[in-house]
C-alpha cells in the first residue's frame, strides 16, 4: 500500500513541475545563461560550429553571460529547431540550408520564417570531382557527356538527397540544359564515403563540399572540375569556378544562427553588435581557416532577405531535382 502512496507522490511532483516551468523577466537582455543549440550529435559540423561560436564569444569577452552548447540531434535538425521554438530569446540555434529544404521536401512542418534570423556566419563551397584518370578534364566536357547519356554517369553524393551537395549539381545541370531528375545518383552515408567511392573508382564523379576533396586534389588523387564559388579559391587557383565554365551560378553552402520566434528589436540589435564584432576577431578567422570556410557574414536584416531569396531558389531546385512532384 505504501508503495502506491509513494508512486502517487512521484506523480504529484511531476505535475507540479510541469506547471511551474516558465518564468522569465526581461531587464537588460541577456540576463541569464545563454544556450546555443547544435541540432546534431557532438562532433558533427553543427556541433563544431556551435562550440566555436561559444569559444570565440567567451574568449574574446564579447558576451558576459555563460554560454552552453546543447546538443539536440535528430530529424536533420528538426528536433533541435523544435526545441528552439519552445524557448525564449536566451536560446539560439545553428542552422544551414536544411532549415529551408526540410520543409520544401515535405519532411518538416517548420518553416524558416517561424524563427528570428540572427546572422549568416560562414560558407563553404561545393565541388564537382572526378577520378584522377578520368577522361573528362573540364566540367563542360563532363556535362556534355552527361547530357548525351544521363543514365550512364554514376554520381556519388552523401549523406542524403536534397542536401547542398546534391542540389548544387542539380542547379549546374539544369543551367546546362540537363533534366536533373534523370541524373543517376548513388547516395552514400557521408561525405567521406563519397570520396572513398571516387578514389576506388566505384563512381564516375562526386558532388561534395570542397573541403572533402581539396587535399586529395592537391595530392593528385582526384581532379576537381569546378567549384561553386564566385572567384577562384585560395590554394587551388587552377580550378575554375562554374561561372568560368559558362554555367551561371554561385552556390554557397552556408551556416548561420537563428533565434526563437518573436525576438525584440533590442535583442536582435544586441546580437548584430556582438556577432559583427566577433567575425572580425583573429580567433574567428582562425576557425574559418582551419575549417576551409569563408567569411559570409550577414546581419539579421540581411540574413532575412538572404533566406527569402535562398528559399525561392531551393524551391525551384527541389522541384527540378524530381524529388517532389
Amino acid at each position: 500500500m505504501r508503495k502506491i502512496g509513494f508512486v502517487s507522490i512521484l506523480i504529484l511532483i511531476m505535475l507540479l513541475a510541469a506547471c511551474s516551468s516558465n518564468a522569465s523577466g526581461s531587464k537588460g537582455y541577456p540576463d541569464k545563461n545563454l544556450e546555443i543549440v547544435a541540432p546534431a550529435s557532438p562532433g558533427g559540423g553543427w556541433d563544431l560550429t556551435a562550440r566555436s561560436l561559444e569559444k570565440v564569444l567567451t574568449d574574446e569577452n564579447l558576451v558576459e553571460q555563460n554560454i552552453n552548447v546543447v546538443n539536440k540531434p535528430g530529424g536533420g535538425g528538426e528536433v533541435g529547431w523544435k526545441y528552439l521554438k519552445s524557448k525564449d530569446a536566451h536560446t539560439l540555434a545553428v542552422n544551414s540550408s536544411l532549415v529551408l529544404t526540410n520543409n520544401l521536401l515535405g519532411q518538416s512542418d517548420l518553416t524558416y520564417n517561424e524563427f528570428t534570423p540572427i546572422a549568416t556566419l560562414a560558407t563553404e563551397w561545393q565541388a564537382l570531382a572526378v577520378p584522377a584518370d578520368s577522361k573528362y578534364s573540364t566540367a563542360t566536357e563532363f556535362l556534355e557527356a552527361t547530357k548525351e547519356n544521363p543514365d550512364s554517369m554514376k554520381i556519388g553524393v552523401g549523406p542524403g538527397l536534397g542536401n547542398d551537395d546534391h542540389l548544387s549539381l542539380v542547379q549546374a545541370a539544369s543551367e546546362f540544359g540537363i533534366n536533373p531528375s534523370e541524373l543517376n545518383f548513388l547516395v552514400y552515408e557521408g561525405g567521406g564515403d563519397v570520396v572513398t567511392a571516387l578514389l576506388g573508382g566505384h563512381v564516375d564523379a562526386v558532388t561534395t563540399s570542397l573541403s572533402e576533396v581539396k587535399d586529395q586534389h592537391l595530392a593528385g588523387k582526384l581532379k576537381i572540375l569546378a567549384v561553386s564559388s564566385d572567384k577562384p579559391v585560395e590554394g587551388i587557383e587552377d580550378v575554375p569556378t562554374w561561372q568560368d565554365e559558362g554555367v551561371d551560378m554561385v552556390f554557397p553552402h552556408w551556416r548561420g544562427l537563428m533565434g526563437p520566434p518573436d525576438m525584440t528589436e533590442e535583442e536582435i540589435a544586441y546580437w548584430d553588435e556582438k556577432i559583427s564584432k566577433m567575425v572580425e576577431t583573429e580567433q574567428w578567422k582562425k576557425v574559418l581557416d582551419n575549417n576551409d570556410w569563408e567569411s559570409f557574414y550577414k546581419n539579421s536584416e540581411e540574413t532575412e532577405a538572404f533566406l527569402k531569396e535562398q528559399n525561392d531558389l531551393y524551391q525551384k531546385l527541389v522541384k527540378d531535382s524530381g524529388m517532389m512532384k
Binding site: G43, L48, G190, G192, T196, E212, Q216, N290
Partner: peptide, 22 residues
C-alpha cells in the same frame, strides 16, 4: 585519406580540423 571509417573516427576528424590539423 582523411576519411573516417567509424563514428568515433568521424568525431576525431572533426575535432582535428578544428585544431588546424587536417
Amino acid at each position: 585519406m582523411g576519411i573516417p571509417g567509424s563514428g568515433t573516427t568521424a568525431v576525431m576528424l572533426g575535432a582535428l580540423i578544428m585544431l588546424g590539423l587536417r
